[in-house]
Computed example of a mutant assay.
Amino acid sequence: MPPPPDDTAIRVDHLPYVARLETRPPGAIDLVVIHCTELPDLATARAYGERVLYPSSGTGNSGHWYLDRDGSVVEYVPATRVAHHVRGHNPRSVGIELVNTGRWPRWLDADHQAMDEPYPDAQVDALLGLLATLRRELPSLRHIAGHEDLDTERVPAGDDPSVQVARKRDPGPLFPWPRVLAACGLHRIP
């Protein structure tokens, strides 16, 4: 397998509220969190990212970069802004969202917990290229984790409240952790 590209073309398309997000120096970032959108496509992920969920600040939930299935990369939030993408770890981390259906559209139904869409090679190659770029640009970056590694809360299932399901399962069982860890030079937080 070839090494990851030295850099990745990134299209900048910041969210409308990006200037309202808290700033931080690049040296404050030591963790990258891998997510999947659990949505059907990039346009739907954009619509979700633009929603204002925190009226006091006028901001919402979003990762920093979104990687489509074809390997294209879009920056929604610059690394120097704190995005809302993972509970308890936002000030120290950046979030990368991979377009993938995950459990969409019944995220919390007990009978719909399989995450069976594979990650295309073009998307994983783009992820490795982005990680290589981030390692050069963020001097303190040392760690990587999946959203599911950091948010382990269990909640009542939407279709059967007597059953508990994981609130977050992304990037899920088909994410190629061995390939990514072998190439990215970061240490996974268990």
Rank of each mutant, 00 (worst) to 15 (best):
R92G: 15
D125R: 00
R136Q: 08
E38G: 11
L131G: 05
A122G: 01
L130Q: 06
A83H: 07
V73D: 02
Q123M: 01
P120G: 03
V124H: 00
V82L: 05
L53P: 13
D70N: 09
N61L: 10
A126R: 00
Y48D: 15
G95Y: 03
L150F: 06
L134W: 12
A47W: 05
N100E: 02
R81M: 03
L127P: 04
R135P: 07
A132Q: 10
L127F: 06
Y54E: 14
R51T: 15
G63Q: 07
L98H: 01
E97D: 12
A145V: 07
R92Y: 12
R46E: 10
H64M: 11
A45E: 11
H85V: 08
Q113W: 15
D149G: 05
H89D: 13
M115I: 12
L130R: 04
L53T: 13
I96Q: 02
Y119P: 00
R69K: 13
N90I: 10
H85C: 09
V99E: 00
L42S: 11
G71N: 01
E38L: 09
P91V: 10
E137T: 10
D116E: 13
T133C: 08
P91C: 11
E75I: 02
V52N: 07
Q113T: 15
R106K: 13
H112T: 15
T101E: 15
L67I: 04
V124Q: 00
G146P: 03
T59N: 04
R135K: 09
